[in-house]
């Protein structure tokens, strides 16, 4: 097991980006509105607390506690949804956080169903869903949900918008992640099956105790690619009229006195997205270094 060391270029990059952000921003109030929206400061700080607990449980390898913290985060988000929250960059972050576990579960399910299952019906079903979601751009999927899919549930359900978005994004990212997990499953040597068989494990136990942990750790870098892609794609929620970072920037630029600031404002938006994506990238690097059994080849 190799130890993770904090990369100095990562720190320099983030510090430079934050400095540039503060130089470009016309006003501190504008920056605050872009990041936290029209909400208050308290909710993000509780998030940070949750994440500290999650990190602690991960390090102690306490899977039950980690699951509990995820459920708590989810319940917290659902309880806090109201008019002013989440808005700004928090929409993108919250949506990504909500989607992570569901994406993971869906991806494992689809990967196992499509490539390891012997039930022909489920195999065809999973194949059709994966191919049709992968072959259509996300905007198309969103328009499908907005115009046709919204009528496919009973009218009295009254789902909050963020739940609809959560379902779309987890399906979309889950299908891409399923392909990643497929690669992981295919890369496992036959000897693992032999070992599990010799130990007298049933197929289910082989999956739960041998294959899935190995596949999940092996595919961390590729999976974080998908997660960062998911985070970037969340800027499309402006199609739903949701006030995420992009939409707030557009709204800010609608005023005639701000017309000449457009390059500045869009650079601010890009830098904010860039900072979060870079931190996610570094976190994936950290996870892989901590949990993987392999040393990276030095060149």
């Amino acid at each position: 097991m190799s130890q993770y060391k904090l990369n100095s270029t990562f720190i320099i990059k983030v510090v430079v980006a934050v400095t540039v952000l503060f130089i470009i921003a016309p006003d501190f109030e504008v920056l605050r509105r872009f990041v936290f929206g029209f909400g208050q400061f308290i909710t993000p700080s509780i998030f940070v607390l949750f994440f500290a607990i999650l990190q602690y449980t991960l390090l102690k390898n306490n899977k039950f506690m980690a699951l509990l913290v995820w459920v708590l985060i989810f319940a917290f988000i659902l309880l806090n949804i109201k008019d002013g929250w989440p808005t700004g960059l928090m929409v993108n972050v919250v949506l990504t956080l909500m989607c992570l576990p569901m994406t993971f579960i869906l991806a494992l399910l689809f990967a196992v169903l499509r490539f390891q299952s012997t039930l022909l019906v489920l195999k065809i079903f999973a194949t059709v869903i994966i191919e049709s979601v992968r072959g259509v751009p996300l905007i198309g999927l969103m328009i499908f949900i907005l115009s046709v899919g919204a009528d496919m549930v009973p009218a009295y359900w009254m789902m909050p918008k963020i739940i609809t978005l959560w379902m779309i994004y987890s399906l979309f990212a889950g299908v891409y992640l399923a392909e990643v997990f497929r690669g992981g499953f295919q890369s496992i040597p036959k000897a693992y099956f032999d070992g599990a068989y010799a130990l007298g494990m049933s197929p289910l136990k082989t999956y739960v105790y041998v294959l899935v942990p190995k596949v999940v750790i092996d595919t961390i870098p590729a999976a974080f690619n998908v997660y960062i892609g998911l985070f970037k794609e969340t800027s499309l929620v402006l199609l739903f009229g949701y006030f995420d970072l992009m939409n707030i920037a557009l709204n800010y630029l609608d005023f005639p006195e701000h017309y000449d600031e457009s390059i500045k404002i869009y650079m601010m938006v890009l830098i904010l997205f860039w900072i979060v994506a870079t931190i996610m990238h570094e976190y994936g690097h950290y996870l892989f270094k901590t949990f993987s059994k392999y040393e990276a080849k030095k060149t």
Binding site: K13, I228, K232, E233, T234, S235, L236, L238, M246, A249, L250, L253, S262, I263, Y266, M267, V269, L270, F273, W274, A277, T278, H281
Partner: peptide, 22 residues
């Protein structure tokens, strides 16, 4: 590569369309 891979496509589009070509 770092800058263009880690920022969303929509943001870049608005940057070019409303920012630069404006």
């Amino acid at each position: 590569v770092d800058v263009f891979r880690n920022t969303p496509l929509v943001g870049q589009l608005f940057f070019w369309y409303f920012g630069v070509f404006y």
